[in-house]
Design a protein around this nucleic acid. Structure first.
Lengths: 355, 355
DNA sequence: GTTGCCTTCTAAATCGATACAGTAGGCGCG
DNA sequence: CGCGCCTACTGTATCGATTTAGAAGGCAAC
């Protein structure tokens, strides 16, 4: 049998409460007795209060739930996601809390069950499509939920986010100001969760991730304002947020006769991939084709990639803080973080004439 | 007040046990009653049995602990680590279990407390240095522990690992068979946990990660056997497992007059970085300088990198299975996975004469 | 000497579920 | 009819801790 508080209490000849206090409230007993208790505990192989029992009594699970979907595990290849997670963990650490990655089965019912069975104090909705079966289960738990989308529908939802549309609007205007009129978008996350590959999504409202939807809208707004025809904008829908996906996505537009003079991506990782594709064709980023990314990961600076900077770690940290220490006032429940268009060498004036 | 089993039981007019059975053992009550109960629960806003209470009663936390150190968060940039984690999550999913990432504070006492407070059924020791304060705390919990090092000292420890030394021995012999005699090692993880940067570690026994220690030993064995002087082997100790670290590490040896004809790295990520460094200097991998990596991540194939293949996802999956369903026999408790030297274009005959 | 306060410890209630033994009622069968 | 057996449910102990109210003893002050 594993020793419990009672085992130790009996061994020392004190009450269970006193042993509990020895661990959790050292000021409640004399230092000598505490020392005796801790020594006895060590001898008995008692490793300290059972975290599960403590959680039950305290009413605090000591963990934040994060759904570990395929999407998320791929997302880990993106430094942005990793930094977000680091931020989350910073907040968690401050609150002596863990991050529970919940593997989500493909079967919808099993997915819901996984969410219901998670011993957590709240959920961080990160990389979970709008229509995902687990998503509803999350809200049904009645626990605090934090997302990264300021415009999320649920009024209960906490959020640490950016004005996605404003961010890409600025990026889009930067391009039109440089004279670009033939533009393409390369993006992951555009497809509805359960649609066949290759589905073409053009309208922001059809995008199943709110953030991506807004990014699309931002470009739409900027370019419409500049007089471009949205239907003329090429949208390449790649699967997966990776450099390779960027290479492949760019390949679909760069070899066309009327190749765009500018490419925008919804992540730096993809943008860097499109730059690889340019290089492979002897095209110069910022001269022959301008490229804009999103996130401003460290590699973006090295590659001279123009991009939208958002504070990754801070986003995670604030999301965590919101979850673990929810503000009383409704205003405080949605935190808007700043973004900034970082102009580097990958954007330049549109080349003259036909190619 | 949040509704509990009792709330629902009272509302329906049945006993608590019956409501519990409605969720956990549908065969124990009539379908009609079950439906009535679930409906009532929904109306009362009862989200299902409290996972913490269930955990306590069942004696199963429903989570595997993984220490989330800085090292691990950097490791996420390596596809190998991500795939390992995916494997772990596969096993976890099968056992309806989560992965609890435990943020580890810098303060040693706080780090130990974090481990003691984690509600988990076992730990996976991944990317935790031998001397790390949290490491001992893990074993003190008396829970199952799985590692990735077959030779780990603790006899209690479960392991899913490879014969690291044999793997690098094969790689080392491949190089000497090709005539290489001026070789260098570029590796992260060599430094003792709490040593100043730049400390030079040459002996396997001084390496604080067992796996890396064995990899070093493998090269040492291969090259000594081939008559090379170990002291002549350049060892570059980089900080961090990243492509950039590889670039920087390679820079330290490639610009020397007696530049090595072969570079070996302890991860593909670093090896790919060294190949970047070669390219930047107009050197051809496999012709001017041979390069060997470790892991065989997908990018290695694309880059034509010779490397040691190890089954990443499988390693994680088996680690998880060992933890969640420990074999009765001692033999089954350490699973050896196969490795294979994958020879690609990045290795070739040593160039003749001086450079 | 009594009152009151402080320190140090104890007893009992409680957190929210699950498991197991037990009971009541219905049904088949010789 | 009486026995056994099955189905459907209940009651109670239990998981391992924390918390709160309270008791015992010591000491100072009036």
């Amino acid at each position: 049998m594993k020793p419990t508080l009672q085992t130790v209490a009996d061994a020392v000849g004190v009450s269970r409460s006193t042993v509990s206090n020895a661990y959790g409230r050292p000021d409640q007993l004399s230092p000598e007795l505490r020392e005796r208790i801790l020594t006895a505990a060590r001898e008995l192989g008692y490793a300290g209060p059972n975290p599960t029992a403590r959680s039950l009594r305290r009413g605090r699970a000591g963990a934040i739930g994060v759904l570990f979907t395929d999407v998320l595990s791929y997302a880990f290849r993106d430094p942005f996601a990793v930094r977000f997670l680091q931020g989350l963990s910073l907040a968690a650490e401050r609150h002596q809390t863990g991050l529970l990655l919940i593997p989500v089965p493909d079967d919808p019912e099993a997915a819901r069950a996984a969410v219901r069975n998670a011993a957590v104090d709240g959920f961080c909705v990160f990389c979970v499509a709008e229509g995902h079966p687990a998503r509803q289960a999350i809200f049904e738990r009645g626990l605090p939920v934090v997302g990264t989308e300021l415009l999320a529908g649920d009024p209960e939802m906490l959020a640490a986010g950016i004005d996605e549309a404003a961010a890409t609007r600025a990026a889009g205007m930067h391009l039109t100001a440089l004279g670009h009129r033939r533009v393409a978008i390369v993006a992951d996350m555009l497809h509805p969760a359960i649609s066949p590959l290759g589905t073409v999504v053009r309208e922001p409202s059809d995008v199943s991730y709110l953030g991506e939807s807004e990014r699309l809208r931002g470009y739409q707004q900027a370019w419409r304002k500049a007089g471009l025809d949205w239907d003329e904008v090429t949208i390449v829908n790649v699967r997966g947020n990776s450099r390779e996906a960027g290479v492949e996505g760019a390949a679909q537009v760069l070899d066309r006769r009327d190749r765009p003079t500018a490419l925008v991506a919804f992540s730096d990782v993809i943008a860097l991939g499109t730059m690889d594709a340019l290089r492979a064709r002897g095209l110069r980023a910022g001269r022959d084709v301008s490229v804009i990314g999103f996130d401003d990961i460290p590699q973006a600076a090295e590659a001279g990639l123009t991009t939208v900077r958002q504070p990754a770690t801070e986003k995670g940290r604030i999301a965590g803080e919101l979850l673990l220490d929810p503000p009383a006032t409704a205003e405080g429940r949605r935190v808007a973080l700043p973004t900034e268009l970082i102009v580097r060498a990958s954007t330049g004036p549109a080349p003259d004439g036909r190619n």
